[in-house]
Amino acid sequence: MFEARLAQSAILKKVLEAVKDLLTEATFECSDSGIQVQAMDNAHVSLVSLNLRSDGFDKYRCDRNLSMGMNIGTMTKILRCASSEDTVTLRAVDSPDNIIFIFESQNKEKLAEYEMKLINMDLEHLGIPETMYSCVVKMPSQEFARICRDLSQFGEAITIACSKEGIKFSAAGDYGNANVKLAQTADSDKEEEAVLIDMQEPVKLTFACRYLNSFVKATPLCAQVKLSMSSDVPLVCEYQIGEIGHIRYYLAPKIDD
């Protein structure tokens, strides 16, 4: 028996919105410690790693480890049927063919159940080693989303250069070029508005806008985003999900021809 309940479906709704552009299908691995998803986009350029800890749920029970292949499009449609304040419960038997989503209104007067067929999927797990990154930047997630959106108008790729002075995003294309520099905030009253740079060595990497613009769909999950970068390795773009877990996106850099 697997059962996981969240008092408000808003978190799960936001998580689905944050992955649906990149993933068509994903395996949800459920164990005593929580729910984990690791899945690459079709082109194998980016990877989504989602972790929801069991202690972050209002109720969590997982008698036996389960791998449930889910269609993300269908799951997104189902989650859109829930109000943000509804309680959401995921339920499955030990060897499931289906998963049930149960939405209950706050006043308990409306109860909706949606059953979704599971799919068989081959697991393609990447082994991602613990990595010390040359630059780790924390910045407001809305600012990052804004910069990705603005610079996407100029080119297909954004170059991120990080040094002690700050972080610089730039894009160049046929119509011109653009760059945005953010300095480390001296001392911000509000933690959410801070730009913090932890730099060992300067880095300069180029990434496809398309993927960055998919990652920023996670912006509603967290006020801050953490970007971890080293030369010639994938970018890690991380959003905390309240007290329950995190979503990390990995993106392979573009390489010089």
Partner: peptide, 14 residues
């Protein structure tokens, strides 16, 4: 011109 690398070039399959 730039080419797009893939994740498998950095991380092995488990």
């Amino acid at each position: 011109p730039v080419n797009q690398s893939r994740l498998a070039g950095y991380y092995g399959l488990n």
